[in-house]
Amino acid sequence: MINLSYRFDQNSSSLQISGMPDVSNGDSENTIGILSSWSLKIIGSPLLEGEKEHLDNLMQVILKYSRSYISGIRKTFVSNKKIITISPFGMSHKLLLKSTKEGINPLEIILDDSELSDLTRCMDLLRFDPRFNIRWDINQERPFRKKYILNNQSNSNKNINFLYALIIFSFASTLLILFPTNDKYELQEFTNSSQTLSKPTE
């Protein structure tokens, strides 16, 4: 049986995939049709290993997160099997990996923007590589609805605008309250004129 191994290197990330051709599916001798193992090395983090299902879950969250991030949306994504979570962490991104084995604590990896793009590029290279004939459980990038983008983008600008509007309104209101009205003056003028008008009748 031919054992094949391909590696995708992107600066801080290195993804290695091992497997063999699926002869029953008509794969050539250079094509991986059955994935036997994978390992991911992110600089500064422990080596990640697992089965196809784990890689599917990792790809799901990373690709969804990157898709949202490119549209200016930063929100948490959890994989289908709930073993991998990615969420914003200040300026960085937090990848939380739960082991399927019992008694192993979840692993937390903090990625900056450059590391996130390295990892995304590794995933992209893998899913578009013609040397693989594997059905990945991931979704095609789709445009979002306008409402979805508006609801999920950071509300800081909206809040600042609202605050400005409130300050301007209260300032203008205070100014108008303090400004003296000339009701009395108009009343006096009116009474004078009424007197002058009444004089000729006498």
Binding site: R67, Y69, I70, R121, D124, L125, E141, P143, F144, R145
Partner: peptide
């Protein structure tokens, strides 16, 4: 400016082009 650089970094390659294209459309 950082946001623009992030968009460029996530736009590399075939997958990146699909991602960028999707961000330029609305459903």
């Amino acid at each position: 400016f950082r946001e623009l650089l992030v968009i460029l970094s996530l736009s590399c390659g075939e997958g990146g082009a699909n991602r960028l294209k999707a961000s330029l459309y609305h459903q």
